[in-house]
């Protein structure tokens, strides 16, 4: 495995690290592109991107992890491009860079949280993407209406409070905390009961949502043969968004169009515990293996 520091002439000057597998591996495998998780620089939460990049290199997959303009080690942009557009443009320019410097033609976009959302949106615009690994993704399956996003946000939070308190594997721990006075029972009850009432009568998240089709959003990718993996932590709000927009059988609905879904029970948003990091890394590597050519008979 060889890691190199690279500079991509895009935006404010993007800094990244390419990881190339040792020579002798399978040729023509897609290149993974890791996108920033929130404001965390390219190494990812708990250095997860570094760990996954190296594990993937051991399986023959090259990768790039880089910082969007203004994050990590990359410079700031000086134009007026909205950030929602610039990060997609820079991700595509990072793919251009890899094509120029390594000959890569096919890419798998991978990210946690906002990195997952941008992976999905970039793949919708760029046919070089052959896979997206969406870890704790939110806000990607309902199109671009800001009002719809606000309404969904309110519903997602209410669903999250209910699920964590009543149906998740954390429920006993959380009720023990509440009974022990370590969290506010009033706050829990407020988020479970008062928030939805306010949302309904206040005209917010309880209002009827405009029509949208999350399966069709995903089909924009799967119809082109793009492999889509949704991977959620049990403790993450993204799982509630997924269930809110797709319903309780969301995973089955997406499976019908070839998209995969996996939930890691007992994990939080940033995979803080080591065993959850192991589980995430294994899940990504297992999924990546399906991109390799089957062995000759």
């Amino acid at each position: 495995m060889i890691e190199r520091a690279v500079q991509i002439k895009s935006g404010g000057g993007l800094v990244g690290i390419t990881t190339q597998p040792a020579e002798g591996g399978e040729q023509g495998l897609p290149t993974f592109v890791f996108l920033n998780a929130g404001l965390t620089h390219r190494v990812g939460p708990s250095r997860l991107h570094v760990r996954m990049a190296r594990a993937l290199a051991d399986q023959g997959f090259p990768s790039l992890r880089f910082d969007w303009s203004g994050l990590g080690d990359s410079g700031a942009r000086h134009d007026n491009m909205p950030v929602g557009e610039s990060i997609i443009a820079e991700t595509r320019e990072a793919m251009d860079f890899l094509t120029r410097t390594t000959g890569a033609q096919k890419f798998i976009l991978i990210g946690i949280c906002s990195g997952a959302t941008i992976s999905f949106l970039t793949a919708q615009q760029d046919e070089r993407a052959v896979g997206v690994a969406l870890i704790n993704a939110q806000s990607h399956l309902h199109g671009v209406s800001a009002d719809l996003g606000e309404a969904l946000r309110a519903r997602t939070m209410t669903r999250h409070s209910y699920r964590i308190a009543l149906r998740s594997s954390f429920r006993n721990k959380n009720w023990r905390k509440a009974l022990g006075g370590r969290i506010s029972i009033r706050g829990v009850l407020q988020s479970m009961f008062l928030a939805p009432i306010r949302a309904i009568f206040g005209g917010g998240g309880g209002a009827a949502l405009p029509a949208f089709d999350p399966v069709a959003e995903t089909r924009t990718l799967t119809d082109r043969g793009v492999r889509v993996l949704h991977l959620y932590s049990e403790g993450d709000e993204g799982l509630d968004y997924f269930q809110e927009v797709l319903g309780g059988k969301g995973a089955e609905r997406l499976a019908e169009i070839g998209a995969e879904t996996e939930v890691i029970l007992g994990a939080n948003h940033v995979f803080t515990l080591l065993w959850t990091q192991d589980r995430l890394s294994s899940a990504i590597c297992d999924w990546a293996r399906s991109f390799a050519k089957p062995p000759a008979a």
């Binding site: 964590i164 954390f170 932590s233 403790g235 803080t272 959850t276 990091q277």
Partner: peptide
Amino acid sequence: ANAHVRVDMDPEGEARSELLGFA
């Protein structure tokens, strides 16, 4: 105690020495 994590679901048990995301 406060994050949505379950250390008891670690398939290796609780023998790991770890600190806030790192071994």
